[in-house]
Simulated assay, not measured.
Amino acid sequence: MKLKVGLYIGIAVAVIAGGALLAAKGNDAISQAESRKQGVLEAEQKMIVYDKSPGTIIKINAVAGDSIKQGDILFKVKSAQGAEVDVLSPDDGLISRIIVKPGDQLAQGMPVAVVQKTTYYADLYVQEGEIQKLEVNKSVQVRFPYLKRSAQVDGVVASISAAPQFASLRMTRERGQADLSMFLVRISVNSNSDLLPGMTAEVDLDEIAD
């Protein structure tokens, strides 16, 4: 009889200890999930707008997919006075789309092309309890967890929303219900051959010094 009682007590102790260990691991996993913020990598796009006097396009020097540098001549335009005007690239990047064609009449303010810039960005949502770890122009490490080989690049905080994006997102905490305010944080990173728009970008807030 005493043997059975001892056995039951041993089983109970093991179950309680195991439950406590699982709970601790579960809390640790939740904490890690809360500190690791993920967003989708996006490419910055810029519309090139014609800002000179009205004229006619006589030559286009680029096509979609071309890599360009700031100052490259993209278009040649003949003004109404007969002078030739160059339309220059305002940034380094990749031509996403050419909107016009030779012979088109241009007026000031007309869009002529779309350029994909060489900087990417990811938008993250950060709780108000952790937003103090971040500030504009602060450097952060950005990981790309689903690449075949581990990739980590330098990033910088480009902007933080002035007001919470979610004023009353409800979440359960040990002491009941509480409102959780979230802030939109944009992280900029330089593009490279391994990175593509649409990839998952991750920032671990626990690695950022206050």
Rank of each mutant, 00 (worst) to 15 (best):
1 M>A: 13
2 K>H: 11
2 K>M: 08
5 V>K: 14
8 Y>M: 10
10 G>Q: 03
11 I>T: 11
11 I>G: 05
12 A>N: 11
14 A>S: 13
15 V>C: 13
15 V>S: 03
16 I>V: 14
17 A>W: 08
19 G>W: 07
19 G>N: 03
20 A>Q: 05
20 A>L: 15
20 A>I: 15
22 L>D: 07
22 L>Y: 08
23 A>T: 09
25 K>D: 13
28 D>E: 15
31 S>P: 02
31 S>T: 05
31 S>M: 08
33 A>V: 03
33 A>L: 10
35 S>G: 01
38 Q>R: 12
39 G>P: 05
40 V>N: 02
42 E>Y: 07
42 E>M: 12
45 Q>T: 07
45 Q>D: 12
47 M>R: 13
53 S>D: 12
55 G>W: 02
57 I>L: 03
57 I>Q: 03
58 I>P: 01
58 I>Y: 02
59 K>P: 03
60 I>H: 02
60 I>C: 06
64 A>L: 06
66 D>C: 10
67 S>R: 07
73 I>C: 08
73 I>A: 09
74 L>E: 02
77 V>N: 02
78 K>M: 13
82 G>D: 06
83 A>N: 14
83 A>D: 15
88 L>M: 06
89 S>E: 03
90 P>F: 12
90 P>S: 03
91 D>Q: 04
92 D>R: 03
92 D>T: 08
93 G>W: 05
93 G>S: 05
93 G>A: 12
95 I>N: 01
96 S>G: 11
96 S>N: 14
99 I>V: 11
99 I>P: 02
100 V>C: 10
100 V>L: 09
102 P>W: 06
104 D>E: 06
105 Q>R: 14
105 Q>Y: 12
106 L>E: 01
107 A>S: 12
112 V>G: 04
115 V>P: 05
115 V>R: 00
116 Q>P: 01
119 T>Q: 09
120 Y>F: 15
120 Y>D: 01
121 Y>M: 06
124 L>C: 01
125 Y>E: 04
125 Y>S: 11
125 Y>G: 04
126 V>I: 15
130 E>I: 03
132 Q>I: 09
133 K>N: 11
139 S>Q: 11
139 S>A: 14
141 Q>D: 15
142 V>P: 01
144 F>N: 02
145 P>I: 12
146 Y>T: 12
147 L>F: 08
148 K>Y: 06
149 R>N: 14
149 R>E: 14
150 S>P: 09
154 D>H: 06
159 S>A: 14
160 I>N: 03
163 A>I: 07
164 P>F: 02
164 P>S: 04
165 Q>H: 08
166 F>T: 08
166 F>M: 05
167 A>H: 08
169 L>M: 10
173 R>G: 10
174 E>D: 14
174 E>Q: 14
175 R>G: 09
176 G>F: 07
177 Q>Y: 12
177 Q>A: 13
177 Q>R: 05
179 D>N: 15
182 M>R: 08
183 F>C: 09
185 V>G: 00
186 R>Q: 08
187 I>M: 00
187 I>T: 07
188 S>V: 13
189 V>R: 02
190 N>D: 15
193 S>W: 10
201 A>L: 10
202 E>F: 02
204 D>L: 06
206 D>N: 15
208 I>E: 01
209 A>C: 06
